[in-house]
Nucleic acid binder design. Sequence first.
DNA 1: ACCCCTATTGCAATCGATTGCATAAGCCAT
DNA 2: ATGGCTTATGCAATCGATTGCAATAGGGGT
Lengths: 362, 362
Amino acid sequence: MIRKKARRTMGGETYKSMAGQKDNEVPAIRTLADLARVAGVSTGTVSRALAGKSLVNVETRERIQTLAREHGFRPNQMASKLRSRRTGVIGVVIPLGHELRQHISDPFFLTLVGYLADELTEGGYDLMLSRALPDGTSDWLDRIAGSGMVDGVIVIGQSDQYDLIEAASHSYRPLVVWGQHRAGQNHCVVGTDNAAGGRIAVEHLVASGATSLAFLGDTTGIEIADRLRGATEAATAAGVPIRHIPIPLATDAMGPEIEAAMASQCSGINGVVAASDLVAMAALRCLHQKGMRVPEDVQIVGFDDLPLAAQTSPPLTTIRQEIAAGARAMVERLRALVEKEPATSLVMAPTLVVRQSTRAEG
Amino acid sequence: MIRKKARRTMGGETYKSMAGQKDNEVPAIRTLADLARVAGVSTGTVSRALAGKSLVNVETRERIQTLAREHGFRPNQMASKLRSRRTGVIGVVIPLGHELRQHISDPFFLTLVGYLADELTEGGYDLMLSRALPDGTSDWLDRIAGSGMVDGVIVIGQSDQYDLIEAASHSYRPLVVWGQHRAGQNHCVVGTDNAAGGRIAVEHLVASGATSLAFLGDTTGIEIADRLRGATEAATAAGVPIRHIPIPLATDAMGPEIEAAMASQCSGINGVVAASDLVAMAALRCLHQKGMRVPEDVQIVGFDDLPLAAQTSPPLTTIRQEIAAGARAMVERLRALVEKEPATSLVMAPTLVVRQSTRAEG
DNA sequence: ACCCCTATTGCAATCGATTGCATAAGCCAT
DNA sequence: ATGGCTTATGCAATCGATTGCAATAGGGGT
């Protein structure tokens, strides 16, 4: 045990004294103080020079900047952020509340993450990605928000954590959520009018001849529940029957379940509203295997308009969510909140993108 | 000017004194010192107690931990990381060297990011996501590696930055790259044997009756170039002609270009090796529109085996890359490197996944 | 009764950059 | 020549947690 202890200590020492000297002949400049010594000025001046402040002499500033570049010096961010009380990092969290099987690699989430990464990088922020598995303790949001590591938090999808998010938003301000808006809610949300999306989908199906509908998708997530609500309303208004088939949204488990569900419950259905493009794709494939033609025998409308919706055969008619615009809006709002300014929620109108998985209207 | 200065100072003060008091009646405990005062001990003891060290009395430790939980106190990570010289953050970078149009939301990258997020979170690390647009200055890797914000860096895809990565690996150790392995390289890489993948694809196509082949995909990325090389070797060995059609891999621009390319160059082709599943999907759709049947008229083999490869119609025969296993391997290796232990590169064997876009062999 | 030892706890230096304030130098006007 | 002003720089406190070392108290052995 003593030996182990000794070894560890020595290891630490070795690390410290050798760090950065392996491939550099020069003594390696690691801190502001090092650079200050080389430049013959104080650390304060170096700090100001590197920050490009006008307080320092132009000549001095450039000399120091050149020196820093030559030595590949970059100030330690940890120290900087500690002192300036600003991290320049935004936390992006995906709560996986219902359906633990729904992996973080869900295409919709990842597409949104991609756009967020672009927007945040553009604005000089870094992006810290976390997945949260809410358990009983329910401190997943506090943990990341209160860690002192991030200036603000973006939550992608409310899952079944709506109440917790709403509660957290009262004490933690720089918080923007992708999801469903409810009247009177406190937290700033950006999302799509899901009910309208469901309605539009059904109206399109009815207009192009569908007479017996199904809604495919589990409605634990409140966004999905709202899509079903809109779809049901429109179906009722049109006098067309609609059946709800709550298959899970998890990518990997979708295949078998959808086949079982469709085999047993879908006889006579000629119009399908899918909770997402992925569900629609699974349905497409399932129908194809059963020898049903799309859109001749059954019409399908997806939801999301992911890039790959245009790549299926037939290409998918779908309800488009403006993911890129949404990402931009979220970052704008979060920045406002970080600056202590107010921000209002945004509910975007969904649009129908007609491709070839439905017939022409009329 | 004086007024402005004064205002700024006051603003700062206000922020400081009011922070965290908005929704809390209690004076809010923000620092170790605050908690120490409440608990009647020193900050050192609190620090040790929260870290769960055995040095402190069990009783005291539990009292402090309870107190911390009650007040929702969480130590400031910036300070902690500064002192302990360990950030617990891994940087994940996607260099977009060739093809700036290739968005960060490329499904393959994002799938890998998803798995990495899972693996890293599991291991107690956070993940900082960056996209890098290498320009002339070429310091994108140093910038993130030397920022002091991360313990290590994972680079997803070498793009056309192989030399820069190789160079950086000499001075920056905790670095693991997803991509192509070259003999004698210094940086630790995890990836697939791309040449073997190309070879397998061609062998399968030939075995199932293809007599005139095409390879679809731009080969600026060295991984893709290697796939083409393997494919060409196998075609030559089998005495079957193969044509290279360098369409770009960018998702959005793929549609039109692939159609133009296939229209002009693909007459007589009955076997296609795609550089990725996405390219394969585009080809699939294109052929479908032209009335060609897959696999009866043309057979297609994709590359990657993304989850959605099973969802196309017909489902895609493809060369599988072990993305999940790769992510795990990368994290394992990175952890070793962070601990100053050696790590060796890993080249995984690709496997053929036969679905319905190719005919039965023999 | 005295000394040694161990289990706890406090003290203060430290990580590295930032920034308010003080200081110094240079310049102009009186 | 002196005071006022601008510009440039240095000094030292500060951000908040960690940790080596010192100090204290209580327990046991002789």
